[in-house]
């Protein structure tokens, strides 16, 4: 048996602990119906043609800095920080499966494969390159080194946080959970977990946070749990979400019971409302500026 640091053993035990609570299917169905009802009402207020994609970042932003929602540009910009997780989980996956001996070697392999895939995808389209690969391929050596260094640090933190031998068949990275609000409501939830393990046939999620554990960590952990639950039947919904903040060494555990799901759903609906308001404001501001520009131009033409 391998000896591991106490806090690694503790986190792993917490992740893999037997399931204590089950969410009653009737309670879950009611909660889900209420959530759908609230979201449909909010979705109806969105400007015509708008679609709101909600992720953990948006929920956090709406909760902590609602004033900033209006100025956020949805355009995604790749950077070493935005792609360290994507490269990092692939690297940890390689290490856990025994394909690479350590994060540095694994990250180098993942990046090299990304470059190959990007080259093939450019030529033939037969391969789908990871989203970061084309951007990474276009970087000079100094830029690539930063991407690699960030990913190595991130991957090392995740790899050394868990006693992987105690986690049978973990899904590291894996696909995001997507949930489309029914009845044509233009609201989509995206949930992400860094590791998924099976405990008594129910998923236990592990999420890696940045910096210190925030005061509203229950929402931060509850959100991926809620989205994963929405995508599944009650009996196979997640049993818990474990959060680890390697930079501060903090660990939090959120059992996904009816109370946690309800509290998260309430916070998420409030966040969606903030985003809907900001979209309405934005659309109004755009309309006003266009009509203002038109009137100036008409006035100018008349003058």
């Amino acid at each position: 048996m391998t000896e591991v640091p106490a806090r690694v053993a503790w986190l792993t035990d917490a992740l893999m602990a037997p399931v204590a609570d089950e969410v009653a299917p009737a309670a879950w169905a009611q909660l889900r119906d209420e959530l759908v009802r609230d979201l449909r009402a909010l979705g109806a207020e969105l400007p015509d043609g708008e679609r709101l994609q909600v992720d953990a970042f948006k929920v956090r932003l709406a909760q902590r800095h609602p004033d900033r929602c209006i100025s956020i540009d949805d355009t995604f910009t790749p950077s070493p920080r935005t792609c360290r997780r994507a490269v990092g989980v692939a690297a940890v996956n390689r290490c856990v499966r025994g394909h690479s001996p350590n994060p540095a070697v694994a990250v180098a392999a993942v990046l090299a494969e990304g470059l190959e895939d990007a080259a093939v995808a450019d030529r033939s389209g037969a391969v789908r390159a990871p989203w970061w690969a084309r951007w990474y391929a276009g970087l000079p050596d100094g830029g690539r080194a930063v991407v690699r260094a960030e990913a190595v640090t991130w991957a090392t933190q995740l790899l050394t946080s868990v006693d992987w031998q105690q986690v049978p068949r973990p899904v590291i990275g894996g696909r995001d959970d997507w949930w489309q609000c029914p009845a044509g409501t233009p609201i989509v939830f995206k949930g992400r977990a860094d590791v998924r393990a099976l405990v008594d046939r129910r998923p236990a999620l592990l999420v890696v946070g940045t910096g210190c554990c925030p005061a509203d960590w229950r929402v931060e952990l509850g959100y991926p749990g809620l989205v994963a639950a929405l995508c599944r039947e009650a009996r196979v919904s997640p049993c818990r979400v474990v959060g680890v903040w390697p930079q501060s060494g903090q660990i939090r555990i959120l059992p996904i019971d009816a109370a946690a799901l309800r509290a998260t759903a309430t916070a998420v609906v409030a966040g969606v409302a903030t985003w809907v308001d900001s979209r309405i404001e934005k659309e109004r501001a755009t309309r006003d500026s266009v009509s203002g520009a038109l009137s100036v131009s008409v006035d100018g033409a008349l003058a």
Binding site: R81, L139, P140, D141, G142, G143, A145, V146, V147, A149
Partner: peptide, 23 residues
């Protein structure tokens, strides 16, 4: 950082400046 991570520094000035550009 580049040296520790990659073991290669070909063009110190260009590499260092590029690291800030990308970040």
């Amino acid at each position: 950082r580049q040296w520790v991570t990659t073991g290669v520094i070909d063009d110190p000035w260009a590499d260092a400046v590029a690291s800030f550009d990308v970040d």
